[in-house]
Design a protein around this nucleic acid. Structure first.
Lengths: 342, 342
DNA sequence: AGCTAGTGTGAAAGCGCTCTCTCGGCAGAT
DNA sequence: ATCTGCCGAGAGAGCGCTTTCACACTAGCT
């Protein structure tokens, strides 16, 4: 009779029990070592580490989460109808920052998308012990997600100031000052008829940049009537620019509230024979990957989106760690990057 | 002595036990309903559904994973030194596709980054019951990740043909044909001195597009010596284009193997006073968001990256579901999109 | 009537951890 | 010597599910 090969789906690797046996200690001690707790002798600690290495042991996350009441994971919730944000370098930057801040800690990142239609489901899901906290980006209007998550007591940090009066911790770039600096720069160039392609009205980013910009123009007694709204896509930049040129063929400068929309704006300017920056000065916002590679290279307001992601994550993890006296919200500086377009 | 308020972190919502009680059945039956199994009477099923709705019950995922030997999650592993890929619209598209394919199924997406330095850690982690399968994108060279994951028996699908002889299921765009079509289009335009900014040498995407392109030129008896490599960043496109112009000032067309690099190339062409497409025809690859918004609008080879993401996910889920006779790998069609630049 | 075969259901044994409890030992104070 | 503490370690009770297994009940056959 031949010996049957055991093919049952057996998790590769050992369980904590085996590690304990090899190290000559109890499961409890192994657990203590894994979780870096105190009250373990150096000798025991070393024995456990050796056993872990020898067996190639990896603790089962599900079991840890179940027994330990924490998931060792956070969610990044992208709240956008079509998931369009994903194409935005802003999102990519945030994602990179989040990830960078997460490496080293034993935390995983869950990516979730939120459509208005299934907010309920999302909340249910987030409350099912899946994650320890959530990062929300690209909130529109007064998203019900925030109060709902608040209610179930899930720690949350929002990227980009949320609209409305909810007092949830958030991290944002100093969009107002950014818009202000953009306006001042155009003014300092001697431009007189200054327009703007602003962001969506239902997002604070859009409103803040626009307000800063208007403030800058007002300082110089320049009219603030030339405003067209886009939605952070290149096409919307194209359309907004066309509208502006139609309304004010004599404009000599434009502040586009996102590089990605500026791409579309530049194309229209080029197609209509306006030279940039000779005829029309263009200044963007973000200093994203394409700013330097635009035609011509784009002068822009730099915001460090990666830092934004890192800061959000840091803030959330600090809260999870139970740290006290955390700043409710943080504003990251922006800076002017002068290239060719303005 | 005052009564301490109970602040213990208690999961909001009920457990399966409570649902069972409210529905007047056993835990087993509730579990069967949740998992859509057979052998449950219509009456019991309804009672359970009602109880779930009433209690706002959400099954604890950790417990399910632990007891059920499956995580209900897959990982998307981005294998790139610096996580640079994240900024690439290619990645964003894939992500969107993956997500779209995942919605509705009860599957979560874990995002993981793989540096060559911590491949071991990654593998350990992936094998710890965290995920049921993995999607790998942006593999360079012969990544050891593939054989390692193969060894631990984790189902894997790769996005973009992996280099080397490993026989892992993959999904890719038909890059060869795409490159071929790009070359033929430039030839059909009457261009004679045709260059290319190719992708990195250690990725199949790069090699495939380049080979297709060379084949296309050869058909027309045109020299294939004008090749400069980039790494899918705008800056690398800039540098590669500068090198090409230096080597062959008389070039009249260039195939840039990614729109994002084409942005940089267009800028150089513009700066050096070459008109596009009059002096130099430019054709990109991807048809990403900025292709249409480039200056001038970019003629390009379209690949449906979102479809790529969906297909990868579909393939992986099918395998997880135990489906038989799945195609080992799939090639998605590309198509020529003619705009202004060529 | 007696036997299968197929349905519907519940009891209970884990899944692999964490964490509370308990207890021995050993320092320093009495 | 005896009494406190505190450090270090193990036993064992869950965490909230899934999944056998056993059992009851229906038909549909001999």
């Amino acid at each position: 009779m031949t010996v049957m090969t055991e093919t049952a789906k057996r998790r590769p690797g050992a369980r904590i029990e085996e590690v304990a046996r090899v190290a000559g200690v109890s499961k409890s001690t192994v657990s203590r070592v894994i979780n870096d707790e105190q009250y373990v002798s150096a000798k025991a600690r070393e024995a456990v580490h050796a056993a872990i290495a020898q067996l190639g042991y990896a603790p089962n996350q599900a079991a840890r989460a179940l027994a330990g009441h924490r998931a060792n994971a956070i969610a990044l919730v992208v709240s956008e109808p079509s998931g369009r944000v994903l194409s935005d370098p802003f999102f990519a930057g945030v994602l990179r920052g989040v990830h960078r801040e997460l490496t080293g800690r034993h935390m995983q990142l869950l990516l979730m998308m939120s459509q208005p239609s299934d907010t309920e489901d999302l909340v249910t899901y987030l409350s099912s012990g899946h994650v320890d906290g959530a990062l929300l980006v690209s909130l529109h209007g007064e998203d019900p997600l925030v109060p709902m998550l608040n209610e179930i007591g899930l720690p949350v940090v929002v990227g980009g100031r949320p609209l409305g009066k909810t007092s949830v911790p958030f991290v944002d770039a100093d969009n107002f000052t950014g818009g202000l600096d953009a306006a001042r720069h155009l003014v300092s160039l001697g431009r007189k008829r200054i327009a703007t392609v602003a962001g969506p009205k239902d997002m604070a980013v859009g409103a803040d940049r626009l307000n800063g910009f208007k403030r800058g123009l007002s300082e110089a007694k320049i009219a603030t009537d030339l405003v067209a709204h886009g939605d952070f896509t290149p096409e919307s930049g194209t359309r907004a620019m066309e509208r502006l040129l139609q309304k004010a063929p004599d404009l000599d400068a434009v502040f586009v509230a996102a590089d990605i929309m500026a791409l579309g704006a530049l194309q229209v300017l080029h197609a209509q024979g306006r030279r940039v920056p000779e005829d029309v000065a263009v200044i963007g916002f973000d200093d994203s990957v394409f700013a330097a590679s635009a035609t011509p290279p784009l002068t822009t307001i730099r915001q460090d989106v990666e830092e934004l992601g890192r800061t959000m994550t840091w803030r959330l993890l600090a809260e999870l760690a139970g740290e006290q006296g955390l700043p409710p919200s943080l504003l990251l500086p922006t800076s002017l990057v002068v290239r060719t377009s303005a």
